[in-house]
Write a protein that binds this DNA or RNA. Structure first.
Lengths: 199, 199
DNA sequence: GCCTGTGATGACAGAGACTGACATCAGTCA
DNA sequence: TGACTGATGTCAGTCTCTGTCATCACAGGC
């Protein structure tokens, strides 16, 4: 293979710059065109002008190419929860964490929708998404514990927040307006309502 | 290979009876002895007196050998939710679903603990467990919709129930008494408390 | 301008998960 | 007795993922 492109140093190089991004782009395209399991890692790498081995240096496995943004999201939420005012209730702190990422989503509405279509079509990918949400919930619970909220309250509040997030995201990704903040507010209110109704 | 055992018809057979159970047992043993990723499917099959190919006829993948009980659990919960009195609140119906499986767990405390040790040691398995919980949540949400609860309430109530279940299970599996009903009741109360505290 | 890392990549081999196709065997039923 | 069925074995093959080593571009010191 012999490719010549301007790399991130502005110099000529045999290798294209931003290999991660190129791999993600190639993967999205191929998953959308032929489906997740009809796409091989070798095929993704080839379209990105790289090799299979290099793919696995950038992503721990085939699914991860669709999910590597998750760490950033988690970090934003944990940061917001941690820096919420000390007098905030556990649920208030979780609300702050959710509010902190609304802009992140609103900026990515079309991409999120395309990505969700792919995920919805393959249970392997749904599994990974579920796991990512679980990791975020665990991180939020840990951040609540650091604020002095004991278990099981910390875990329950974090899980409730993630439940709100999931419902809000489902609503947001289907809608055309793409206002994540409103979706979150509505789902928060709905959760409070169904709990207040009692059992 | 030539094995002679009394099969489930009471007759002599070349094949041991209950191949599924034998595979599950062999897998639990090997996972506990050598760890999940140090154990090969061929190794599990060999200990069960079967072949790798037969393993994959009984379980869709390597992880599933630890999780095939999940469908039973889901069915019990959906059944209980569906047959809850029509006047029950959404949260009340979900509580009925959780109550319906407490005995199931109390009967399996030592086995659940051994299984959890294995799962906690491997993120691949945690991912599958998370996905199974997600499937149950989806099934409960669907059962709530069938009772006339619209989204996002149905989804949120189901997710809240699963959050309670997860916290309760974590508490139960660590405790020595093994009273799942009490754990669920406590976590339910804790959830209601943190939500009532407001944001 | 040369020399020497250092980091990213390619090339290659191999283990292990999983699938498809076909053969075999035990039990069943006509 | 013979055909049928269901569960299994056998074998070949694809794909995911890993370890190892060679190569190349770039950076920094001399």
């Amino acid at each position: 293979m012999s490719v010549s492109v301007i790399n991130y140093h502005g110099a000529m190089s045999r290798w294209p710059s931003n290999p991660r991004g190129r791999l993600q782009e190639a993967a999205m395209e191929l998953f959308a065109e032929h489906g997740y399991d009809q796409t091989t890692v070798a095929g993704i790498a080839e379209r990105a002008g790289l090799t299979e081995r290099t793919f696995f240096r950038h992503f721990s496995d085939k699914r991860e190419v669709l999910f590597s943004g998750g760490e950033e999201l988690r970090a934003m939420m944990v940061e917001a929860l941690t820096s919420a005012p000390p007098e905030a209730t556990p649920l208030g702190a979780v609300e702050a964490a959710l509010s902190a990422v609304t802009a992140f989503f609103d900026e990515r509405h079309p991409m999120s929708r395309a990505r969700q279509v792919i995920i919805d079509a393959h249970s392997e990918l749904q599994e990974r998404e579920c796991a990512k949400m679980g990791k975020i919930a665990e991180a939020l619970a840990e951040a609540l514990r650091a604020r002095g909220v004991p278990d099981p309250d910390a875990r329950l509040t974090a899980d409730a927040g993630i439940a709100v997030f999931r419902s809000a995201f489902a609503q947001w990704v289907r809608s055309d307006v793409g206002d994540m903040r409103t979706c979150i507010e509505e789902c928060f209110a709905a959760l409070e309502k169904v709990i207040a109704q009692g059992r």
